[in-house]
């Protein structure tokens, strides 16, 4: 019973934090966009415009809800639901901190540590594309359909390369559990140093999976009006946009925990703090890393223009996947060499 209660509290906290960070990511996006363009950004709602996400939310709720008359009603509603659901589900396997020891019992700051953690993430992400596809098809609009089709082909292409990057990582870590991967990166033994090519591949694919610039072709305004969410309005549109920011937060968390040490930080043993204190500091540092990657996502968005569709496919199939295979080969040699099984 106590187990269930703790897990319930954790789920609520992770859910609330994801939503809160996603809400403020919208604000951060606008602020960063403004700063990078020598502007000020939203500063009217509250001090420094901090109430802007609230105002945006109210605006979204107040808008008229429109379902096109020729749309498939059920699927039209199902689309944003799937999108939001899959976005929120991924946070379950991420270890947010080492854990707290209270009265002799150890409580890990993670909802569940399943032994196929990273595969679970892939599974959920691969379901996420249905949100876009169903929504785009059910709208009964050619632009929406084009957006949906672009989204699906882009997601499939980059999921492959992402999988390749992660396979190389699994070869060095020898585990699928995200928690064990993070524990192995104790101190400064981060995976980024053993997998430099893998990091680049993974981050590029994460951009593509999140539909972020330079890979935001599914909602490419210049060609497709609004892409898959052209026909959406009110809070259904809000769900789509919001899910994008949750995805961004979660992928930042995954990049940080797979390659950049998660809640580990250099000189963790030399500080001389109590384990509980270290765990709290570690969680804060983990969030610092996440915020850096969220910033990085936005920084890229306001720097690089969008790829053309054929360039996107070219990059995915002819560059990322061969590089991924090369990385696997290199990692294999490295692992053999490290274990002393390679003799020249």
């Amino acid at each position: 019973m106590e187990f269930l209660l703790i897990k319930f509290v954790l789920v609520v906290i992770v859910f609330a934090v994801s939503l809160g960070i996603a809400a403020y990511s919208t604000y951060a996006e606008r602020k960063i966009a403004a700063f990078l363009q020598d502007r000020v950004g939203p500063d009217r709602a509250g001090p420094f415009g901090l109430l802007q996400p609230l105002a945006d939310g109210v605006k979204m709720f107040m808008k008229e809800e429109i379902i096109p008359s020729n749309a498939d009603r059920l699927l039209f509603i199902l689309g944003p639901c799937i999108m939001m659901m899959t976005a929120c589900m991924t946070g379950v396997v991420i270890p947010w901190g080492h854990g707290l020891e209270i009265n002799g019992t150890f409580y890990p700051v993670q909802i569940t540590d399943i032994n196929i953690g990273i595969l679970y993430v892939f599974g959920v992400v691969s379901i996420g594309v249905y949100g876009i596809m169903i929504g785009g098809w059910a709208s009964n609009n050619k632009y929406s359909l084009m957006g949906a089709i672009r989204a699906s082909s882009q997601m499939i292409s980059y999921e492959l390369a992402m999988g390749m990057a992660v396979i190389a990582l699994i070869m060095t870590t020898g585990t699928l559990s995200v928690r064990e991967m993070v524990e192995q990166q104790h101190g400064i033994h981060w995976n980024v140093f053993t997998q430099p090519l893998g990091v680049i591949l993974f981050i590029v694919c994460a951009f593509a999976e999140c539909n972020r610039t330079p890979f935001d072709l599914p909602e490419c305004e210049t060609e497709l009006v609004g892409g898959y969410h052209t026909e959406y309005s009110s809070m259904k549109l809000g769900f789509y946009l919001f899910a994008e920011y949750i995805n961004m937060f979660i992928s930042s968390a995954i990049i940080a925990s797979l390659y950049f040490g998660g809640y580990n930080f250099p000189f963790i043993d030399q500080l001389g703090l109590s384990p509980n204190m270290l765990s709290i500091v570690g969680t804060l540092i983990f969030f610092g890393k996440i915020f850096f990657f969220i910033f990085f996502f936005m920084w890229i968005r306001w720097t690089i223009p969008r790829f053309r569709y054929d360039q996107l496919m070219h990059l995915g199939w002819r560059t990322m996947i061969p590089l991924g295979i090369l990385n696997i080969l290199g990692t294999g040699i490295y692992v053999l060499y490290k274990n002393g099984q390679l003799h020249f």
Partner: peptide, 14 residues
């Protein structure tokens, strides 16, 4: 889930 639901059925739907 990844292979069938996530990849192959996406191609079917596509």
């Amino acid at each position: 889930i990844i292979v069938y639901a996530g990849a192959i059925m996406v191609l079917f739907l596509f």
